[in-house]
Amino acid sequence: MKAFFRPGIVILLSCILLTGCSRSPIPELGNVNVVTGFFAEYFPEEQSYRLSLEIADFSGYEKSSDITAKRITAKGKTIAYAFEKINQISEKQLYISHAKVILLGRGFQALNLKNTIDFFLNHPEINSDIQICMTQTDILSEQEDSDSSFFAPLSSLLKRETLCGFPSLYQLYQKENQSFSLPVVSLNDATPAISSSAVFSNYQYQRTVQNDIS
């Protein structure tokens, strides 16, 4: 009995301390919606945001190239509110750690990006290496009938272009009071391409530079 006394105390304490962990609602892989990217748009006249999340769809999955996508969209006064609405609409919990790209619409040229960057960076699950880019058109509406993933090829494209010094989310956060440029994405025969760069200074949009890769 004495031999079991000390291990018994340790096991009892461990059980007491760890019981809370089993109640945490952590869903498993297979029970989550894997988010591949964000598309955010700001409407200055309405002062509202529209947030679209692209979710990977595995229903016809045979190999990784067969990933299809579906989109969930919500509007809100703030981007956080829109995100919360999407959480409620989604039938499964959102998993955003593997999201690769945040695509900001033209409306963000009228906004200071700091709040948007803060929102994404403060999310505990987001990958701080996520790429940020802009678009001049409503790309996702143009892709509405397509069920192939838009953000997967865009993320591959941006990985190549990182040699040109486009900052990631965390690097953007460090660029307060500095200038930086974000790639501007457009569709070229239904495939994403970087057509220009949007220059920002102190998170405020300045101008768009054509084919500026510096």
């Binding site: 892989l29 297979g30 990977a56 595995f58 999955y61 593997h98």
Partner: peptide
Amino acid sequence: LYSISAAR
């Protein structure tokens, strides 16, 4: 991740 998600 995609493989395991699809399988599960």
